[in-house]
Design a protein around this nucleic acid. Structure first.
Length: 567
DNA sequence: TTTATCACGAATCTGCGGGG
DNA sequence: CCCCGCAGATTCGTGATAAA
């Protein structure tokens, strides 16, 4: 069916939800795009846009409207509906409280009222009111805790060294993690705008607003068409409208991280090389053009060692980007907001696709941090708290926040605590990998008879980190570094199970036979039984006993073998 | 064979805080 | 309270290619 243009694709959602800010509509609808709007909702939406535009023109961006109450205030509001309503946004804002909004949705106050699970709303299009959307309360800034002492000093006009020194002394996240790699924020790329540039930006803003209006109108149009299309196709296909909607609107966001490629490694290194000492860095296009001419950097002209070095540098860079400590509270806050938003989106989408319920709580790790505590649940997931545990989710968030800040730990402390967990996780991951690669659900990892397993199952565990003895993680991992090294290898799939080709299998067999011939104990040999060679007493000859005995004898033997191997 | 990730710098956007 | 500029974040655009 060629109707894909009728449906909001993921491209739509990213453009529409996160791209061009300015109006709160754009930033607040990031996770609403999967909804179908009823005519009533569309009307509300239009009013909302108008209201927001006028606010924006009058008072600047909507975030300026955010109440400057303490973080406790909205929680109190949740717990106590009689809390002054002044902190609440207009009830006309049906979509005004997605994860990124500083405001609270009206439905947040109505938490005790059971929320309908989302799927039940799909069919009844006209009654799917905004109030049945998920509560997604996000607790607004600023935090009541004192601001990090480092923040104001880090603000500007400081050199990189001064910043680093201040950060080290401060209670900020990098300051609490001395010795850990810190991502240096991009600085100095900003130049003062000329009047012409300013004017140009202003014009662009106006143009952008106009474009956005067009975009919104187009989206509304698409949504209307989608409604009609679903209705029509449901009849043709003889499926329930509700079912079709679910299929159409469930978004899939399966994205796998790509393995680092040689080409990207080369481009990355080359960019650094050609930009060295350059005041204004070259655009990628130019870098690629230069690279195309520079034959010394072409993969076919690079030695194996050079390639390995480039790749190692590139991988290290990526690791740093992924896990480097954020240098400032401000960048940490941005990262946090974005990351939690993504988690919420996953919970939401997965819930739609698979019918699951989920919730997510994330709070700052230290009173010096300034991150928003957030909690989120799809459909009626958050009802679990009041209905089963007898406690409001907001209260849980507050307790969690308190727990977290009074049990603050930096990365090293966390890792020290986590040694056992990491070790266990390694063993689990290896076992799971074996099950996946063999397709045998009940298979167990046998470290001591590993080579028997390799030959029998035609699989192999590759990429075991150098310097760590191969064996059961419980036995061979003795310190944090080794545990983390193995874990990183497993997590990055550097160390993983692979299937052996016939040639590889022959190769391994030959290799093992050679080693065995040299007297090496590669194959596990069982100790001969103590009564070997002796004539044994006959078992009772009843039919039942005989059949049972036969079966269990084999079974028990294998079990014993496994237990022995795993220890 | 098709899809979409990912390298980079530039462009663009947002929140914060100083100053009027 | 509002405006403005800074700092730092995200998104865009292009081509190659890993992954599906």
């Amino acid at each position: 069916m060629d109707g894909s243009h009728f449906y909001p694709s993921s491209t739509w959602s990213s453009d529409y939800g996160q791209g061009t800010g300015g109006s709160s509509l754009a930033e607040n609808t990031a996770f609403q795009d999967a909804f179908v709007f009823t005519p009533e909702e569309l009307e509300l939406l239009a009013q909302e846009i108008a209201a927001q535009e006028s606010i924006t023109e009058k008072h600047g961006p909507p975030h300026a409207e955010a109440p400057s109450t303490s973080i406790r205030a909205p929680i109190d509001a949740l717990l106590n509906p009689s809390y002054p309503e002044t902190i609440l946004p207009s009830p006309l804002t049906p979509f005004a409280s997605s994860w990124s909004s500083p405001g609270l949705e009206t439905t947040d106050l109505a938490l005790p009222v059971p929320l309908s699970p989302v799927p039940s709303n799909f069919g009844s299009s006209s009654s799917a009111t905004p109030s049945t959307r998920e509560p997604s309360p996000v607790l607004p800034m600023p935090l009541s805790a004192p601001p990090a002492p480092s923040a104001p000093q880090l603000a500007r006009q400081t050199t990189a060294e001064e910043r680093a020194e201040l950060a080290q002394k401060s209670l900020s996240w990098p300051g609490r993690n001395p010795g850990h790699a810190v991502q240096e924020p991009r600085r100095g790329t900003k130049t003062t705008l000329t009047p012409a540039q300013k004017a140009s930006r202003e014009a662009a803003t106006v143009h952008g607003r106009f474009e956005k209006e067009k975009l919104i109108a187009a989206v509304q149009d698409i949504i209307r068409q989608q409604e009609q299309e679903i209705k029509a196709q449901a009849g043709v296909l003889n499926v329930k409208e509700e079912r079709l909607k679910k299929l159409v609107q469930g978004q899939s966001v399966f994205k796998r991280t790509r393995q680092p490629s040689m080409r990207d490694a080369i481009v990355s290194a080359y960019a650094e090389k050609v930009n060295e000492g350059r005041e204004k860095r070259l655009p990628l296009k130019d870098i690629e053009a230069l690279l195309a001419k520079d034959e010394s950097m072409h993969p076919e002209n690079l030695s194996l060692e050079q390639k390995e070095e480039l790749m190692a540098r590139f991988v290290a860079k990526k690791v740093h980007k992924k896990g480097g400590v954020r240098a400032t509270n401000s960048s940490a806050a941005k990262d946090h907001t974005w990351s939690t938003g993504k988690v919420h989106q996953e919970i939401e989408n997965s819930g739609r696709r698979n019918g699951t319920l989920g919730f997510h709580f994330q709070v700052q790790g230290n009173v010096s941090d300034t991150l928003e505590p957030t909690f989120y649940g799809n459909a009626h997931a958050l009802d679990f708290f009041p209905k089963v545990l007898g406690i409001q989710p907001a209260q849980v968030a507050r307790m969690f926040d308190l727990y977290s800040t009074t049990n603050s730990k930096n990365l090293d402390e966390r890792e020290a605590d986590g040694f056992n967990d990491v070790r266990d996780a390694c063993a689990d991951k290896i076992a799971l990998g074996l099950r996946l690669v063999t397709g045998i659900r009940t298979i167990r990892m046998m470290y001591k008879s590993y080579w028997d397993l390799v030959l029998k199952q035609k699989v192999e565990l590759i990429g075991w980190p150098e310097g760590i003895t191969f064996g059961n993680p419980s036995d061979v991992l003795h310190n944090r570094d080794d545990a983390h090294r193995l874990w990183r290898a497993l997590e990055s799939n550097t160390c993983q199970w692979v299937k052996l080709t016939d040639a590889e299998l022959r190769d391994r067999t030959a290799m093992l036979n050679r080693r065995a011939a040299n007297g090496e104990a590669v194959f596990k040999t069982r100790k001969p039984r103590s009564d070997k060679g002796k004539k044994r007493k006959q078992a009772p000859a009843t039919a039942a006993a005989a059949s049972k005995k036969h079966k269990s004898a084999e079974f028990v033997d294998e079990e014993e073998e496994d237990e022995e191997d795993e220890e």
